[in-house]
Design a protein around this nucleic acid. Structure first.
Length: 396
RNA sequence: GCGUCGGUACUCAAGUGGUCAACGAGGGCAGACUGUAAAUCUGCUGACCUUAGGUCUUCGGAAGUUCGAAUCUUCCCCGGCGCACCA
C-alpha cells in the first residue's frame, strides 16, 4: 500500500504544486479527489505524449479518485501557444469535432469509462462558449499582463519581433477558468503545461479560495534531455496498429529506453533500475530491452496477444528480412504501369518520387531479388518493397 | 494615422534585375554502415516529360515596367518596430 502511494507520487512525475506534502495530506484524508486532464483536440490522433498523463490519471482512478478528461474543444479554436514560435492557425469547429471523434476510443484502453468509478468526459465549450464579453472582462481582470509575460515563449517572441496576439494571452486564462468551473481538486498534465496549470491554481485561489494541486508529468526525452516531439516522426500514436508501434519504438534512440520504461509501462521501478545498470555495464543488448519496451507499451494500449504478434512480425520482417504477414494488397490490370499503380494507391506521392526511388535502387521485387530500374515498368503480380518500410503486393 | 522594416518552398532562413526551382540548416526520403536502431557518411527533396537535357507552376495578392522579375514601380492585404492619437 505504502509502495503504491510512492509510485503514484513519484513515478514519471516532474513536479507537484504546491508541494508533495500537500498532496500527500490530501490523499491521506481518504477523501475522493476530483482531478482532470485537459486535452486540446488539435489533431485527430493522440500520441504517446498524451498517454503519459493519461496513464497517471489511470493510477489515480484505480486509487478511487474521480477522473475528468476535459476536451478543450473551445480552447482548441485558439490554440495553445506553448512551444509555438508563431501564432497558430485557428481551427474551425468542424475540424475540431472531427479531431475529437475517436479520442474516447483511444483513451479507453487506458482509462475506464465503465463501472462504478468511471471517468467523465467534459467539453469546455459548454461554459467558455456561453460567456459574454463582460464575463470575459471580469475574468481577465484577475490576471496581469506581467504575469503573462513571465512566460518564456511570449517573452521570446516579443524579443524576436514576432507577433503575440491578445487571444493567445487569453489562452492560459481560459484554461484556468476550466479548473474553476469544474471545481476540481487537482490537475495533471505534461510539464510543458506547467504555466497554464498554475494559472488555474492562482485563479482557483482568487475566486474560490481553494488550493488546487497540480501534478506535472515528465516528458519523454532521451538521456541527453532531448525532447521527443511528434515532429520527429517516430512518435507513437495511440491509434497506431501494433505493428506500427513496434516498428516505431524499435527505431527510437537507445537513450530513450529507460525514461520510456518509467513513463509508459508498468514495469516495476526496481526492475527498471536494474536495466539501467545492465545497460551501463554493457551486459544487455539495448535492442532486446527495446523489444521488451515495445511489448510492454503495446500490451497496455492494445493487449498482450497483439503485442506478441507484433513482435513476431517485427522479427520476421526486419531481423530475418522477410515480408510481414499483413501488407497492402492492390489489384492491377495486366497493362498497368507500376508507377501508376503506386501513385493511385498513394504509396508514392508523385511520379518524380518514383523516378528518384528508382535511381536510388529503392524499389525491388522481393522473391526475385530484382531491382526495378525502368520507369515504364509494368505492374507485375508480385510483392514489391519500396525502401525499408514500404511493402505492396500487386495482384492481377 | 504617419514613418520605417519585413512577408521566400514542410519549418527556419539566404537571395535583392538574368548564372534561381531559388545558398544554408532542420525535417523527410533513399543508399552505406549497424543491433531494428541512434550517431556517422553519401545522394535526393515543386511538378511533368523521350533525364548530364526540356517544359510548366512557385518567392503575401493584383496590376505594371522590362527581351527577361523572388529581385524594380503602383495599389491592396498581413505583421514587427518607432512616433502620434488617447476622445
Amino acid at each position: 500500500m505504502e509502495n503504491k502511494q510512492e509510485e503514484l507520487l513519484k513515478r514519471g512525475i516532474s513536479a507537484i504544486y504546491p508541494s508533495v506534502e500537500f498532496l500527500e495530506s490530501k490523499l491521506k484524508s481518504g477523501k475522493k479527489l476530483t482531478l482532470y486532464l485537459g486535452i486540446d483536440p488539435t489533431g485527430p490522433t493522440l500520441h504517446l505524449g498524451h498517454f503519459i498523463p493519461i496513464k497517471k490519471m489511470a493510477e489515480f482512478q484505480k486509487a478511487g479518485h474521480q477522473i475528468i478528461i476535459l476536451i478543450g474543444d473551445f480552447t482548441a479554436m485558439i490554440g495553445d501557444p506553448t512551444d509555438k514560435k508563431s501564432t497558430r492557425q485557428p481551427l474551425n469547429r468542424k475540424q475540431i469535432l472531427n479531431n475529437l471523434k475517436d479520442y474516447k476510443k483511444q483513451i479507453s484502453t487506458t482509462l475506464s469509462f465503465k463501472g462504478k468509478n468511471k471517468a467523465k468526459i467534459k467539453f469546455n465549450s459548454k461554459w467558455l462558449g456561453k460567456m459574454k464579453f463582460e464575463d470575459v472582462l471580469s475574468l481577465a481582470s484577475n490576471m496581469t499582463v506581467q504575469q503573462m509575460l513571465e512566460r518564456d515563449m511570449f517573452k521570446k517572441r516579443m524579443e524576436d519581433g514576432r507577433p503575440v496576439s491578445i487571444h493567445e494571452f487569453l489562452y492560459p486564462l481560459m484554461q484556468a477558468y476550466d479548473s474553476v468551473v469544474m471545481d476540481v481538486d487537482g490537475e495533471i498534465g505534461g510539464n510543458d503545461q506547467t504555466f497554464n496549470m498554475l494559472c488555474g491554481r492562482d485563479l482557483m485561489k482568487t475566486l474560490k479560495n481553494k488550493e488546487k494541486f497540480v501534478i506535472t508529468t515528465k516528458l519523454l526525452e532521451d538521456n541527453q534531455g532531448q525532447k521527443m516531439g511528434k515532429t520527429e516522426g517516430n512518435m507513437v500514436a495511440l491509434s497506431d496498429s501494433p505493428d506500427e508501434m513496434f516498428g516505431k519504438i524499435m527505431s527510437w534512440s537507445d537513450g530513450l529506453i529507460i525514461s520510456s520504461f518509467e513513463l509508459c509501462t508498468n514495469v516495476p521501478m526496481s526492475e527498471i533500475n536494474q536495466f539501467t545498470k545492465l545497460l551501463e555495464q554493457g551486459e544487455i543488448n539495448p535492442r532486446d530491452l527495446k523489444m521488451r519496451l515495445a511489448k510492454e507499451i503495446i500490451t497496455i494500449i492494445h493487449n498482450e496477444n497483439k503485442a506478441k504478434v507484433a513482435e513476431q512480425n517485427f522479427i520476421k520482417t526486419f531481423q530475418k528480412k522477410e515480408v510481414p504477414d499483413q501488407i497492402k494488397k492492390v489489384k492491377a490490370g495486366v497493362n498497368d504501369l507500376l508507377i501508376d499503380v503506386l501513385l493511385n494507391n498513394k504509396v508514392i506521392q508523385s511520379k518524380t518520387e518514383f523516378r528518384r526511388l528508382i535511381n536510388e535502387g529503392a524499389i525491388s521485387i522481393i522473391d526475385k531479388e530484382e531491382k526495378i530500374t525502368q520507369i515504364d515498368e509494368l505492374a507485375r503480380p508480385a510483392v514489391y518493397r519500396i525502401g525499408k518500410k514500404r511493402f505492396i503486393q500487386i495482384e492481377n
